[in-house]
């Protein structure tokens, strides 16, 4: 029925997606508070990272308590990660030396969250499925 003591118990990827999403969300919040974004220009990089960080933490916590379906969690995670990748292009990050940290951080965190979310969804969809060990014969 279940694996023996010498077998690894299932995949760890879903938990990793949740943990990394929360960690990176926290990192964004901390960075937006203490990081060097150059001269602030209204509602741009700093507040974007702060809000997206909060959304990422909330998303991770909702994943952790199992309040989201895989479809919703994947869509939300991809949207958050995709927005972080696009944000430096759509918002006024300044594209100067001062904004390099924010730009690179957003790209990196956005790409990581997107990739992990998609990988987690693919893993739950196929790879995590245990092998069939029950034969089912149907009679009309």
């Amino acid at each position: 029925m279940t694996g023996g003591p010498d077998e690894i118990a299932g995949t760890q990827l879903p938990g990793a997606v949740t943990g990394v999403t929360i960690t990176l969300g926290c990192w964004l919040i901390v960075l937006s508070t203490h990081g060097d974004y150059g001269a602030p220009t209204g509602f741009d990089a700093v507040w974007n990272d702060r809000l997206v960080g909060l959304v990422a933490v909330a998303l991770g916590l909702l994943r952790a308590v199992g309040r989201l379906t895989l479809t919703v969690a994947t869509a939300a995670g991809t949207a958050v990660g995709g927005w972080l990748v696009l944000a430096p292009l759509l918002l006024d990050y300044g594209f100067s030396t001062d904004s390099t940290l924010a730009t690179l951080t957003d790209f990196a965190i956005g790409a990581t969250i997107t990739a992990l979310t998609v990988a987690g969804a693919l893993d739950r969809g196929a790879g995590a499925r245990p092998p069939a060990d029950v034969d089912v014969v149907t009679r009309p």
Partner: peptide
């Protein structure tokens, strides 16, 4: 509408 029979592919390891 239908019936089915489920059987394990190998001997049950926990004895049930």
């Amino acid at each position: 509408r239908e019936a089915m029979v489920l059987r394990p592919r190998r001997a049950d390891r926990d004895g049930s």
